[in-house]
Nucleic acid binder design. Structure first.
Length: 602
RNA sequence: GGAGCCUUAGCUCAAUUGGUUAGAGCGCCGCCCUGUCACGGCGGAGGUUGCGGGUUCGAGCCCCGUAGGCUCCGCCA
């Protein structure tokens, strides 16, 4: 037998005592007593203690003195019981230890850039040495959990008759949506591929192809600014099916998520998930992806202030707006700094200011209370269940602004009060009946909220004809987990006439339609079945399953805030020759910049 | 494009109101240590306080600029 190891490092037990074993792995830690030396040998499965005793093998002990953390070694020897009283219950292998008769140093580790057992906050450094950082048990566990998730999703979808089909990475730029990554074509000089923002068009064309049930664990690319939960390349579990109604997509998604959580966490997720319309979600939580793990719901106060003397509230109502409030329980101790922060937040989202009432020592403390009548106060107290120690926040504005302001403040207060910090609740929710279109004031045109292939609700087709675009609801839905949108989809348009009508509504004229979406419109004329689907953000989903706050923690090689891979130093300048092949020339000033930009020192 | 926070030893951090030679833990090097499991003990090396400028008798600390990082807004059909 000529193998590197006979067992992994979480395998040996009492029952192996007396046996010969060969182990391999990394030196996790050396405890050198001058005489006896202990090594914790680590591999991906766990730790085994290796003991070098000078009286048993002086030469090996001498070598073991020089072992350092993260050296890669192989040891062979006898499995022995630990001396009574020195067993380590924290280790699966804590009852035994290996007494080696041979030691091979497979590779030395030089000085380490950081310690794996520390919580390093210098993410820059961790990303530079990502291959080393990934040895951390937490990250290693995350990668393996991610594998469990994709594996469970594949098995589930396969069992439901879905076929995994790969779609092109070199594809075509789409005018709507996010900025595309472009790839210059050598064979067609001056022309560009785009990396897909999603396999949207391809999966619809697969429905026209008669596939009926498609899925893909698909890499997607969007050239936009990054966030903790946004990377330029990310992965979707992409699903499309023919002859389906939303109900079938809901049931399929619920079944898949239940299978995933069972496989990854051993949790039984109750299905079906509750549902809420977009309107209701924004009305009561100020968000289209409500976090319902805590209350603090928005309450409508139109009834209370319809005839009020208080000009701020009355004015908002008279001009078609709303007055809404929410009760932050036990938040009367709000600090001046927090008031300033929340007020700044309110202004950032378009409010003129932020009115609030603190309830302290039985007294309502606020500059606006003096404008309220007793009846108004009573109505407030009852509608908002106001008690000692509460803090009430008000917004009086257009519906969109008032709900968003209170929704954002609600989340910030929950953060300050740590309302979800220790929660292990998994609150799944469908948000339905999204608006189809949204007016973009900057562009002075209507855009698709979801994407231009989204089907309007049949009931709202007359509204579309009347060009009351803002009121048309879409056959679109999002699945939300604990206030995070983990997926979204819709039933699509399969009729060329309706699709063309919607393109026109989005400001895409006939000529552009042919140039950009001609293949879609032609496909729809060759017998396109009704179809619809959903896409789930795999990275976000795994992030939530792993209890992480950033998707970088569940990706093997993520990019930093500026979209750079610090490890490989990409993106990097192109060789002159590569540019020549592509018939590309850099503008002079950018060339100078690109050449002078050397990698950061390290 | 904008806002906030951050940048001191290889790593994590400290340094009173602007005041002597910028400290500690871990890591590293050397010596000691035979049952530890974050082993322990003694000693040592290691710093252009991100960079540039200013104020001051004196700046890690105050001011201006700049670079980088993170979070957020815009953006993300």
């Amino acid at each position: 037998m000529n193998r590197y190891r006979s067992h992994h490092n979480a395998e040996l037990r009492k029952s192996d005592i007396g046996a010969q074993a060969t182990l391999a792995g990394w030196v996790d830690v050396r405890r050198d007593h001058g005489g006896v030396i202990f090594i914790d040998l680590r591999d991906r499965e766990g730790l085994t203690q290796v003991v070098f005793r000078p009286e048993e093998n002086a030469e090996l002990a001498r070598q073991a003195h020089h072992l350092r953390t993260e050296d890669v070694i192989q040891v062979s020897g006898r499995v022995a019981p630990r001396i009574a009283g020195t067993e380590n219950p924290k280790l699966a292998t804590g009852d035994i230890e290996l007494l080696p008769s041979s030691l091979t140093i497979l590779n030395r580790a030089e000085n380490l850039p950081f310690h794996l057992d520390d919580e390093v906050k210098n993410e820059d450094l961790e990303l530079t040495y990502r291959y080393y950082d990934l040895r951390r048990p937490r990250l290693a566990r995350n990668l393996r959990l991610r594998h469990r998730v994709t594996q469970a999703a594949r098995e589930y979808l396969d069992a439901q008759g879905f076929v995994e089909i790969e779609t092109p990475i070199l594809s075509k730029s789409t005018p709507e949506g996010a900025r595309d990554f472009l790839v210059p074509s050598r064979l067609a000089p001056g022309k560009f591929y785009a990396l897909p923002q999603a396999p949207q068009q391809y999966k619809q064309l697969l429905m026209v192809a008669g596939v009926e049930k498609y899925f893909q664990i698909a890499k997607c690319f969007r050239d936009e600014d990054l966030r903790a939960d946004r990377q330029p390349e990310f992965t979707q579990i992409d699903i499309e099916a023919s002859f389906v109604r939303p109900e079938e997509i809901y049931a399929l998604t619920e079944g898949m998520l239940a299978a995933v959580f069972k496989a990854a966490r051993g949790i039984d997720v109750p299905t079906p998930f509750p549902r809420m319309t977009y309107r209701e979600a924004v009305d009561t939580f100020g968000s289209d992806k409500p976090d319902r793990r805590f209350g603090m719901q928005l309450v409508d106060l139109a009834d209370v202030f319809r005839g009020s003397e208080f000009k701020m509230f009355r004015g908002a109502l008279d001009s078609g707006g709303v007055v809404k409030a929410m009760n932050a329980k036990g938040f009367a101790g709000i600090t001046i700094g927090q008031v300033d922060e929340l007020t700044a937040m309110a202004k950032q989202y378009g409010a003129k200011g932020l009115a609030f009432i603190k309830v302290e020592n039985g007294e309502w403390k606020s500059p606006i209370v003096k404008f309220f009548t007793d009846a108004e106060k009573q109505a407030l107290a009852s509608k908002l269940s106001i008690e000692e120690g509460d803090c009430i926040f008000f917004a009086a504005d257009r519906w969109e602004i008032a709900t968003e302001v209170l929704g954002r403040i609600r989340l910030r207060i929950a953060e300050i009060q740590q309302l979800t910090a220790s929660s292990d609740v998994l609150d799944f929710l469908w948000v339905t009946e999204f608006p189809l279109m949204q007016f973009d004031a900057a562009e002075d045109k209507w855009n698709a909220v979801h994407h231009p292939f989204t089907r309007p609700k049949a009931d709202d087709l007359p509204l579309l004809e009347e060009k009351r675009y803002g009121e048309v609801r879409a056959e679109a839905y999002d699945v939300v987990l604990n206030g995070v949108e983990i997926g979204g989809g819709s039933i699509r348009i399969h009729e060329p006439e309706l699709q063309a009508k919607l393109f026109s509504a989005y400001g895409v004229d006939e000529q552009q339609q042919q140039a950009m979406f001609g293949h879609m419109l032609r496909a729809f004329r060759l017998g396109a079945p009704p179809h619809g689907g959903i896409a789930l953000g795999l990275d976000r989903l795994v992030m939530l399953i792993c209890g992480e706050l950033s998707i970088r923690e569940v990706m093997a090689f993520p990019k930093n805030n500026r979209g750079m891979d610090l490890m490989s130093q990409s993106p990097a300048p192109a060789e002159r020759r590569q540019l020549r092949d592509l018939r590309l020339r850099l503008a002079a000033d950018e060339r100078a910049q690109s050449e002078s930009k050397s990698p950061p020192e390290r």
